[in-house]
Each structure stands twice: as structure tokens, then as C-alpha cells.
Design a protein around this nucleic acid. Sequence first.
DNA 1: ATAAATACCTTAAATTTAAAGGTAAAACAT
DNA 2: ATGTTTTACCTTTAAATTTAAGGTATTTAT
Lengths: 149, 149
Amino acid sequence: MQVDELNWAILTRLQENARYSFAEIGREVGLSSPAVAERVKKMEDAGIIKGYKTQISYHRTGYQLKAIITLRAFMGRLKPFLEKVKEFKEVNNCYRITGNENIIMEVVLRDQVHLEEFIDKLITYGETKTHIVLSQVVDFAAINKSKIK
Amino acid sequence: MQVDELNWAILTRLQENARYSFAEIGREVGLSSPAVAERVKKMEDAGIIKGYKTQISYHRTGYQLKAIITLRAFMGRLKPFLEKVKEFKEVNNCYRITGNENIIMEVVLRDQVHLEEFIDKLITYGETKTHIVLSQVVDFAAINKSKIK
DNA sequence: ATAAATACCTTAAATTTAAAGGTAAAACAT
DNA sequence: ATGTTTTACCTTTAAATTTAAGGTATTTAT
């Protein structure tokens, strides 16, 4: 499936705010709302749109710490980790990467105690390196409300 | 503002799928749709909800490469970088972190040529390390369509 | 040339949202 | 303790949106 100019315009708006109505997008790109709905459905079916996610400020909900943790898995421990990591609710995002480390993940934690507990879980799988996130430099979501008219 | 059990239930659903209707969420958590709308608006105003984003498979749109790049900024080059990075459309996410490197970012690129061009832009600011993403281990969004009933 | 598929349209019914007004319980002030 | 205010919901209703159906013109395939 190809992503033409109209679909890019639709995707751009949905990335800005996933709760935009199809009617609103249609007005902006010059299509009827059923036409937008149909194009969106096709992009979902084709796997171009993977999902719609709400961005939460964990900082405001008692999760004070964000960290980037890399893992260099011990021999034979990568596969068990890949299975187990799906259960770790602290993990926001996890990639398998090239380089000295095998895994990089973004985790959200309540505090240092929680971080320590989490690292204790990880060290059975491999050697970890932790980087505390000081600030988010690029933050696309900050200005979006559920609907902008 | 406190996040009580009802708000967590609402947030959980919105994280699963940001396009769920308030009516649908209300049915699941036992509230009327105006009550859900009101709670969501308050969480937006309080900054608990930062935004609603659509997740796109860049792989399906010609952007074949995802990479994690760290930057160890040269003396006096961190601040200029922090300003400039907002303009780099390749950057999906960028954090300032503790440790040997100052910056970690997630970037999306068309191909190796594009990666090379991008690194050329970065090396005026500092020393970079690039890790190609092989796969996404944890992917929450994969199963969500625009509406599940 | 004809048939089929595509991408849109319009219309109308079902659903959702948004606004308004009401109520009961909790929080606050006197 | 009592009265007042606020809060968090409710219901109702109008406006808006979504969904489904049916139609049309243009492109694609046979």
C-alpha cells in the first residue's frame, strides 16, 4: 500500500492528536468524513497505523523517575529475558539493538527504591547500565488537548 | 490532583487505545459519558494527560531504519544542540540523561545514506554512538484498531 | 470494449459529544 | 452544629460525528 499526499496529511493530523475527529480532518484535507474513515481503516489494516496511545505524565502520578537501561545479556539469557520483559510493567519501551549491549529500554519508576528493586530483577539476565532521564528535550505532545477546533 | 482508581481505569483504556469513545469507557468503568469527559478534561488540565499520539509504522512508509543515537556533547555545544534538535524531523524522542553521554535519542531514517547524512549533522555538536534497532520487543500498540467494541 | 475495482460522494440512522440543569454527598466556614 | 459551597455525578437534549448503505465517475484489468 502506498501512502499518498492525502494519507500523509491525515497521518500528520492524527500524530498531532489521535483524538481528532474524522470530520475535522476531512474539513482540513478536503474530504468527507466517511472518506477519511475509509482511508484510516485501510492504513490500520495495512499496518501503517499501529495504534493510538495516550501520553501520560508519570511524573504527575507518583512515578518520579524515568530511566534508560541497557542490558548486555549473559550467555543463553537473552531469550528468557525477551519473554519475561513483556511482564515488567515498568518498561515503557524496549528495543533489541546492535552494539555492545543487546537491549535498551525506557522504564518508569516511583523512586530510587523502586529502581533498585527493578535492577535486581534485571541482573539475573545480564549486565545493566542505567541512565537517569533528566529532561525530555523533544516533546511533541505537550500542547494537545482532546480536541482543538 | 490525585489519580484515583476510576481515573486509573480511564487512563488504562486511553493508553490501550486513545480513540476509545468516552461512552465506551463509561460503560466499562461504570460512569456516564459526560462524567468520563469531565474527568478526562481535568486530567488534561492538570497535565496528567499530555497528549494523544498515533503510532505509525515507519517501516511501512519507506523509513526502513530505526536507531538509538547517544551524544556526548563537546564543550559549550550542548545548549546549541538542545535548541537545534527540535528542528530535526528524524528525531522521534530525545532525552537528556546522566552518565558518560548527555543525550539519547530515537531516530527514524530512510536508509544508510540518510543515517550518514544525519550523523554528519550531529558530529558538529559532539561525539555520537549509534545503535541500530533490530526489533521492538515490547509493542503495546500492535493490536489496537481505531475502535474495538 | 466491457467488466471490475476504486475512491469518492450523499443521505440517513445510530451513536457520541457537549451543554445545561438538577441532586446528593462531602468539604468548608461561621 | 448548622448553613454554604463545592464536587462529582446524574439525566436530558441538541449538535456533531460516525457508520452503513447506495450511487457515480474514473481508473484498472480482462
